[in-house]
């Protein structure tokens, strides 16, 4: 499992380095004023990146020779994999909910969007105590707005709520 992961990292890194290399070639060079040019340093960085990928490949090969991951039985492994899949779906749901929050952040305003966002998350992860979730989700954004907007001069979006 570990070896496969490292191989995937190496493959993704090589593809990323190739894309970076292509983009570096597209940078316009000027004939005057800058003898070194804006491409040289990125080329050096790209070489370093590829070197890192090659070292990782070497490390994954030598670890394959010395370790064998046969100690975990099939049943616990399947259960672990199922749990990991569920976790991935949970993380995807949280990221999706956060993205939705960011999309409406300016339109709805800081307070309305944050109250809704917090309420959704706390109801999911602090189950059974909806009164506390509701109180925290309503009060903290208002307190946050007062502190950041008025005390620290951070201009948070007002959105639909006239503030």
């Amino acid at each position: 499992m570990e070896i496969n992961r490292d191989r995937i990292i190496v493959a993704v890194s090589i593809v990323f380095a190739a894309a970076y290399l292509y983009a570096t070639g597209q940078i316009t060079m000027l004939d005057f004023g800058d003898p070194i040019g804006p491409r040289l340093f990125p080329y050096v960085v790209c070489s370093l990146f590829v070197l890192g990928a090659l070292i990782l490949l070497l490390e994954s090969r030598s670890s394959r020779r010395t370790t064998a991951d046969d100690s975990i039985a099939d049943a616990p492994r399947q259960s672990k994999n199922a749990q990991q899949r569920r976790s991935i779906w949970m993380i995807a749901a949280v990221l999706g909910w956060t993205l939705l929050y960011l999309l409406v952040f300016e339109r709805l305003g800081y307070i309305i969007s944050t109250v809704t966002f917090l309420l959704g998350l706390t109801l999911c992860f602090y189950r059974g105590r909806w009164q506390i979730s509701l109180a925290v989700s309503a009060l903290v954004p208002i307190l946050g707005y007062l502190v950041f907007h008025h005390l620290l001069n951070v201009n948070l979006p007002a959105g639909l709520m006239p503030l």
Partner: peptide
């Protein structure tokens, strides 16, 4: 734990810096 991963991470940081 891995030198390769350390260099990849540093390389990515330098790429972002450019």
């Amino acid at each position: 734990k891995s030198l390769g991963k350390g260099i990849l991470s540093a390389g990515l940081g330098l790429m972002l810096a450019t």
